[in-house]
């Protein structure tokens, strides 16, 4: 495994910081090294927000995202801000609601926010995206993702977020294998 540099981006309130922490902790359960960083400031006020996770089988020298090889974009701003920095062989997962002409070669759109809303938990969009990422890429195991969700949320929020996560896993399962799946480029 090479190093994953995963940038989760979108808007404040979508739970990107928490999703990043959950992703990193699920990687730790698998015995990998992980570092998690997140943007501060407008995060709670609805502006642009992101969260970076570096995951590696080796010790991590530099813990921040240099050039993401997996980018999640949940808002138009997040897409426009970050798409150019994506590694040339990197993957892009975006919310089809962002309504942009996405041109990146390894890009795949999902109705992430809409699907989260349908589960009754729109604020679980980033967790749902985490389910998609878990399903598409060999980064974390689904059981570790679920365990990290349970570890990080107050009791009453665990079930709604597990629902989002599992919905994401299902959506990833509908993708033709080999299309947008893989290990770190």
């Amino acid at each position: 495994m090479k190093e994953w540099q995963i940038l989760l981006s979108g808007s404040g309130g979508q739970g990107l910081g928490l999703a990043g922490k959950i992703l990193a902790e699920a990687a730790l359960y698998r015995g990998l090294h992980a570092a998690h960083s997140q943007s501060y400031g407008a995060r709670a006020r609805g502006g642009y927000s992101d969260s970076g996770v570096v995951i590696s089988s080796a010790e991590i020298a530099f813990p921040l995202i240099e050039k993401p090889n997996l980018l999640l974009a949940l808002s138009p701003e997040a897409y426009h801000k970050n798409a150019r920095s994506l590694d040339k062989d990197g993957y892009l997962i975006y919310d089809t609601d962002i309504d942009s002409a996405v041109q990146e070669k390894n890009a795949r759109g999902f109705p992430i926010t809409k699907a989260a809303r349908e589960t009754g938990n729109e604020r679980g969009a980033a967790i749902l995206a985490l389910g998609i990422i878990t399903g598409l890429f060999d980064i974390i195991a689904p059981k570790d993702g679920e365990r990290a969700i349970a570890d990080n949320l107050p009791a009453q929020f665990i079930e709604p977020n597990l629902q989002c996560y599992r919905r994401g896993l299902e959506m990833a399962g509908q993708v033709t294998p080999g299309d947008h799946t893989g290990t770190a480029p």
Binding site: K21, A24, L28, H33, A35, H36, S37, P63, L64
Partner: peptide, 10 residues
């Protein structure tokens, strides 16, 4: 610094 302060590591 602000980065290390908010960075999460093991």
């Amino acid at each position: 610094d602000a980065t290390i302060a908010h960075l999460r590591e093991t």
